[in-house]
């Protein structure tokens, strides 16, 4: 989290001009329940950003705000420098949302034909069909398609207008491995054509395979942001837990420490090089006790990261406390 804050502060302001879509201090409550809490997040031109988080983290809310389907409770949402509901912006945006029911009696080509008509410069039908892997299914009714095929139709509707900015909300959820790989290829192709893509997912693997940049979201807050490699370093390394007299500042100086946090009387250190960090720790503090080293696969490590954060943020209705804790820690460093 500390690393994240530093990164955010060091982000050059020049990038603001490249922001295609942004959330600035955005909060969103559903009947008093916060879904997003003071989120700052931007999508830059030509990049593929993954919003990674568990279910209920606020990913879909963020996408719906950027699509102008909702208004934020606080903060500002901007797409192409303007209001996301602006029709002139909408013609440059494509979206794939999670949807419960699509009219089942229309054929694939009819769905695409209708959505293409909304846009100023739609792609030719054949191109859309090919891109979504629907070539042989054009005359099928939507209701006759399998789950994976339905997802591909929704993808086709998102890209048929040749949008500059594409939102994909959990595009591969429920897909088999083959369909997922195929969709990944198509998403990559969009970026090769200089499109900007925001993808939400709860698969670290997916974010890793596709994204230029990953923002990890949990409980309505962005808890980490960086390249997939940076996120992986945080999540894929080992976790060292110990009780030590060393200050956080001192611990921070140990090479290989990616992230550290206090947990009750102990400290938790994330590191990609656990052995050397432990060697250093023991050398610096011979009285160190309670040493535990845990290792986890990517998914588990990622879950651990988000879980740690949620236990930190447990008093949901006391974000000030959380904030002051954080600033206190910032001062210490």
């Amino acid at each position: 989290m500390i690393a994240t804050l530093e990164k955010m502060r060091s982000t050059p302001s020049a990038t603001v001009a490249r922001d295609i879509a942004s959330l600035a201090g955005v909060s969103k409550n559903y009947d008093q329940v916060p879904a997003l809490r003071g989120v700052n997040f931007a999508v830059h031109a030509g990049e593929l950003v993954a919003l990674l988080g568990p279910n209920g983290a606020g990913k879909t809310t963020a996408v719906k705000l950027l699509l102008g389907l909702m208004q934020p409770s606080a903060g500002r949402v901007r797409v192409f420098g303007g209001d996301p509901t602006n029709p002139q912006n909408r013609v440059r945006v494509g979206a794939m949302l999670q949807v419960g029911r699509v009219p089942e009696t229309l054929r694939v080509r009819e769905h695409i034909d209708l959505f293409s008509s909304y846009y100023l410069r739609p792609l030719p039908l054949a191109e859309v069909l090919a891109a979504a892997g629907l070539g042989k299914l054009a005359d099928r009714k939507f209701g006759d398609l399998s789950g994976g095929q339905r997802q591909r139709v929704l993808f086709a509707l998102a890209i048929c207008g040749d949008p500059d900015l594409l939102f994909l909300d959990e595009p591969t959820v429920g897909l088999d491995v083959e369909s997922r790989r195929m969709l990944w290829d198509e998403i990559r192709r969009m970026v090769e054509r200089d499109k900007t893509v925001l993808l939400t997912t709860h698969y670290l693997e997916e974010a890793d395979a596709l994204a230029d940049r990953v923002a990890v979201i949990n409980r309505g807050e962005i808890i980490a942001e960086g390249t997939p490699a940076e996120i992986k370093a945080k999540t894929s390394g080992k976790r060292i837990r110990c009780i030590t007299r060393l200050s956080l500042t001192r611990l921070r100086q140990i090479p290989g420490v990616v992230e550290l946090r206090e947990d009750r009387e102990a400290v938790e250190i994330h590191s990609g090089e656990a052995e050397s960090v432990v060697r250093e720790l023991l050398a610096l503090d011979p009285l160190l006790t309670g040493l535990e080293i845990t290792s986890a696969g990517l998914e588990e490590a990622f879950l651990a990261l988000t879980k740690d954060n949620s236990s930190h943020a447990a008093p949901l209705n006391e974000p000030e406390l959380n904030e002051s804790q954080r600033s206190a820690r910032r001062k210490m460093l």
Binding site: K64, L67, G68, L69, P87, R90, V91, V93, G94, A95, L97, Q98, V99, G100, R101, V102, P103, F115, Y118, Y119, L154, L157, G161, F167
Partner: peptide
């Protein structure tokens, strides 16, 4: 109720 109107509304 089942989200299709949102897809339409997100489109132009």
């Amino acid at each position: 109720g089942l989200g299709w109107l949102q897809v339409k509304r997100a489109s132009p």
